[in-house]
């Protein structure tokens, strides 16, 4: 009961944020709605017993990546977006396609729901220790590879954003 109430409340927040991202015309409003989505996703992760992932979601996504977006929007002084012929075409052909995709995915998920189990609040929770063990054992190589990826990303960002003289 409590779990259902919390789930529907947070899910409504999530979907409202995502729809607002779509409807707002100023990028900073879109960015703020995305932050709302990310925050409510962190709450859903807590419901699913993933406290470490929830906090990393807030620190990395809401606290670092989105700050970078907001910073760039403020730096470039981005205004409201203008609508062109291309965007109207995308709307006419895109909207039915999106509705079709949602319908299809929801149908597939709900028709197979007998094989899926239920989530019980507090029945299973992973601690930081539980996440760390597979991360530094089974997934050690991917972990090291991501560090190289990050290094390349840093170098790429420096080279791209540098002003040429």
């Amino acid at each position: 009961m409590l779990h259902q109430a919390l789930f529907f409340l947070i899910a409504a927040m999530c979907v409202a944020g995502a729809i607002n991202l779509l409807l707002q015309r100023h990028p900073i409003h879109s960015a703020l709605s995305l932050i709302v989505v990310m925050g409510s996703l962190a709450l859903l992760y807590l419901l699913l017993g993933a406290e470490f992932v929830a906090m990393i979601q807030l620190i990395v996504y809401a606290g670092a990546i989105m700050v970078l977006f907001v910073f760039v929007i403020m730096l470039l002084n981005a205004g409201e977006e203008e609508h062109t012929r291309g965007s109207r075409m995308a709307l006419w052909f895109g909207a039915p396609a999106v509705a079709a995709i949602v319908g299809m995915v929801v149908y597939v998920l709900t028709s197979n729901s007998t094989t899926l189990r239920e989530v019980h609040l507090g029945a299973w929770a992973s601690t930081t220790h539980d996440v760390a063990m597979p991360l530094f054992r089974e997934y050690l190589l991917p972990f090291e590879v991501t560090s190289i990826l990050i290094l390349i990303a840093i170098l790429g960002a420096v080279v791209l954003a540098r002003r040429e003289h």
Binding site: I35, M55, L58, I59, A62, G63, A64, V67, V70
Partner: peptide, 12 residues
């Protein structure tokens, strides 16, 4: 981590 998360969102 909760304290770090809250302070990192405080930028907004």
């Amino acid at each position: 981590l909760i304290i770090l998360a809250v302070t990192s969102i405080g930028v907004y």
